[in-house]
Simulated assay, not measured.
Amino acid sequence: MENIKKLPSLTLGESIKSVLGNLTNFKGRARRSELWWYWLAYFIVMMVLAFVLGAFPVVLSVIAFLLQLTTWSVTVRRLHDRGHSGWWVAASIIIGLISNIYIMQSGYYEAMSTINPNIEEATEVLRGPVFPTLGFLSFIVNITIFVFCVRDGKPEDNKYGPSPKYVPNELADE
């Protein structure tokens, strides 16, 4: 470990540039600073876009999906930095999709979108076994992803590539 040097954290600008330069790259590794700075920028951009494009939901949805793709890729690369599989992100996406399909097909929206919403019918959908189970699974998977992403990356190379934070001394001086 003595012939390895730790690079300084990325700045907000460096992080955004790195993530946007790896838009759909789900291979390799990403540093904590890259992930968290990008998530902050993503949150701010999405808030502004929601305010500005709120009257154009289709345009907002397309832009939001493209930006969400970048958050998935950097999160997968962050998991790789710890030596974990990107399938955790896929599991989170799949659980979210199943939850949305279930809610749309359950009659919840119809019950809640009338002039006099039928609260009993809507809450019955939420009280059944499916929605709480999906919520619990989503919670477990997303907390796991969060914990993996918070922890420091492995300094040694792993099956996903070399460390983006810890480099050999001879490379750090270049």
Rank of each mutant, 00 (worst) to 15 (best):
V74F: 07
R29V: 10
V89L: 06
G13V: 13
V130T: 08
Y38I: 03
L137P: 06
I44W: 11
I143N: 13
A55L: 05
E14A: 14
A64G: 05
E110A: 05
F26W: 14
T144F: 14
R32D: 02
L66V: 01
T11G: 11
D81P: 09
I4W: 08
M46V: 00
M1V: 15
I119E: 03
R151G: 15
K159I: 12
V150N: 14
N100T: 09
F56G: 01
T71L: 09
L137F: 12
P129G: 15
R29Y: 01
A55F: 04
I44A: 04
E2G: 02
E156R: 13
L7A: 04
V147F: 14
N3F: 05
L53K: 00
N116R: 01
L137T: 01
E14G: 06
P129V: 12
R151V: 03
W72K: 05
L53V: 00
V62R: 04
S106E: 06
V19T: 01
D152V: 07
I95C: 14
G13W: 15
Y166Q: 00
Y109T: 02
W36F: 11
I16P: 14
L7S: 05
R78C: 12
G107C: 02
L134V: 12
E121N: 11
Y42E: 10
E121R: 10
L171K: 15
V52G: 00
N116Y: 03
